[in-house]
């Protein structure tokens, strides 16, 4: 690719000697794998509830045909998988997330694949035009994600409820870990950090917002780790509940 410097016309090569292609490849494999699994699990419409565990892909369960309805807003006329109704909201939250944008622009769009490695596309308009200008609505996906998070906390609390008795099983531990990771990921989101106080120029007369901004900052510093950990664990939570519901594994219970 030619630039005004003339350097690349003659030395037209990637000068990096490290394995720069590994990182974008990991993004493609992990993110692509998650989307494929989440789509399959959401369309499966079965084995998503193993009493008292409800898969996060099916929560909140908003149709009457749910095995374990959270809030049956839709009547019996809805005969498709109830996950279809809600799986889009967490996916939209992650798709518009500032951290994931970095990852999939590098992995899938190769724009750029790695630092100082030339862009694959010949032209580039960034997030100034459709469809990527929609990324600007990330905060609205955050609002929905917070609502879903409240429901997932309720599900995690319900995971201690074994037919009216307090109990703890491996599923309980997994569901609590899942919701803790999702909370860390959601509250450390760049939009959350801005909305709780980052929009201010002066924190002096806004001590509560300053504190909230500080807490969100602490989570945001490792937003990438929260993002990956919560992504993997939410998938594993669904898989665990699915395997228990299918009878493939028996949920170990320490107190029940």
């Amino acid at each position: 690719m030619a630039t005004a410097s003339g350097v690349r016309r003659i030395g037209d090569r990637v000068e990096r000697k490290d394995l720069w292609w590994v990182e974008p490849l990991i993004y493609v494999v992990v993110l692509g794998g998650f989307v494929v699994y989440a789509t399959w699990a959401s369309l499966a419409n079965g084995n998503y509830y193993a009493d008292p565990y409800l898969s996060p892909f099916y929560s909140p369960c908003l149709a009457q045909n749910c095995v374990h309805p959270t809030l049956p807003l839709l009547g019996s006329w809805w005969n498709l998988s109830p996950a279809i109704l809600i799986v889009g909201s967490p996916l939209a939250f992650r798709f518009t997330c500032y951290y994931y944008r970095r990852s999939y622009y590098r992995g899938f769009f190769r724009s750029p694949p790695a630092c100082l490695v030339p862009d694959a596309p010949k032209t580039y308009s960034g997030e100034t035009r459709f469809p990527f200008i929609i990324q600007n609505l990330h905060r609205y996906t955050l609002y929905i994600a917070v609502l879903v998070l409240v429901v997932l906390w309720w599900d995690a609390i319900e995971a201690f409820n074994f037919h009216g008795h307090f109990g703890i099983g491996l599923g309980t531990v997994i569901m609590v870990a899942n919701v803790l990771l999702l909370t860390g990921y959601t509250l450390g989101c760049h939009s959350a950090r801005y909305l709780v106080g980052g929009y201010l120029d002066s924190f002096h007369k806004a001590s509560l917002r300053f504190r909230l901004w500080t807490y969100s900052n602490r989570l945001n510093v490792r937003h990438n780790r929260w993002a990956w950990a919560s992504l993997v664990v939410v998938g594993l939570t669904d898989l665990y509940i699915r395997l228990v519901a299918m009878g493939v594994i028996v949920d170990p219970r320490w107190i029940s």
């Binding site: 500032y98 944008r101 970095r102 630092c115 580039y124 997030e127 990527f132």
Partner: peptide, 24 residues
């Protein structure tokens, strides 16, 4: 300044010798 052109791939942050968290 065209801020919308930035697709936050964070290379600027990675190379900053002063460790300024440019993107975040």
């Amino acid at each position: 300044a065209g801020l919308g052109f930035c697709n936050i791939t964070k290379c600027c942050t990675e190379v900053c010798p002063e460790d300024i968290h440019i993107t975040d």
